Simulated assay, not measured.
Amino acid sequence: MLDAPSSSPRLALVSEDPLARGALARALSDQAEAWTVVAAGTQEELEAARGEPPDVVLWDTGLRLEEGAAPDLGAPVLALVADEAAGELALGAGARGLLFRDVAPGMLGAALHAVARGLTVFEPGLSHVRAAPRSTAPSGAPGPDTLTPREREVLGLLAEGLSNKAIADRLAISEHTAKFHVNAVLAKLGVQRRTEAVVRAARMGLVTL
């Protein structure tokens, strides 16, 4: 059994749904040991604010998780997922622990303590889940097979001059996910700016200007 922490653990609570954030905060406050919620909001809001790192991040992935990155707040992440598919995506995105969204408050508190100490935690029903494979850029010059189908779509929209928000609207994804895909395209093409990505892609025959 893990030793009790010497002080109240600092928690960042990430969820796109304000009702879910409120329910989780109440569930943790009802426990005998107090939690200090130092930040609560959407992933985009908290990553933009970038305050002092918490001890652990509780990430409610919602009912449908798209490919993306776990909250980058300088602390290990415990993800709450709706199903096994979301668990695979959350692991691939960088989560250190997985629980179902309807987890009991007692198990949630124990798992948060464990993840804060650097342990990996799986609810029994998710113990067999493995991270979904993610595309990585090969060494050497990038080629047409470097980009995923979704990244090719994003690249085509970049060539049209669309902003991240416009890309998100066109593909029916969140703006945060659109930004993630844009950054992946830039990294795989070895450029820093969107215009450079379009020019390089045109030279490689990936887009037509």
Rank of each mutant, 00 (worst) to 15 (best):
P5T: 08
S6A: 14
E16F: 04
A20E: 07
G22S: 10
L24P: 08
R26Q: 09
Q31R: 14
A34P: 14
T36I: 03
V37W: 01
A39K: 11
T42N: 04
Q43Y: 02
P53E: 04
P54C: 07
D55E: 13
W59I: 04
D60W: 09
D60C: 10
D60Y: 05
T61H: 02
G62E: 13
L63E: 15
E66T: 00
E66S: 06
E66Q: 04
E67I: 03
A69F: 01
A70I: 00
A70W: 00
A75G: 05
A75Y: 10
L78Y: 04
A79C: 10
A82C: 08
D83M: 03
E84P: 00
A85M: 00
A85P: 01
L91S: 02
G97S: 04
L98M: 14
F100W: 14
A104H: 13
A111R: 08
L112D: 14
L112Y: 04
L112T: 11
H113Q: 14
R117A: 14
T120E: 02
F122I: 05
F122D: 03
L126I: 10
L126M: 12
V129E: 12
R130W: 05
P138G: 12
P142M: 10
P142I: 06
G143Q: 12
G143P: 10
P144L: 10
P144E: 12
D145H: 03
D145G: 05
D145Y: 06
T146D: 15
L147G: 10
P149Q: 08
E151T: 03
E153C: 09
E153Y: 04
E153G: 03
L155V: 12
L157I: 12
L158N: 06
L158A: 02
L158Y: 07
L162G: 06
S163M: 07
A166E: 15
A168W: 13
D169P: 06
R170Y: 11
R170F: 13
A172C: 13
S174I: 10
T177M: 02
A178H: 13
K179N: 09
F180D: 02
N183P: 00
A187R: 15
A187S: 11
K188I: 06
V191C: 03
V191W: 09
E196N: 02
V199D: 15
A202L: 01
R203K: 12
M204Y: 07
G205R: 11
L206V: 12
V207R: 01
L209S: 12
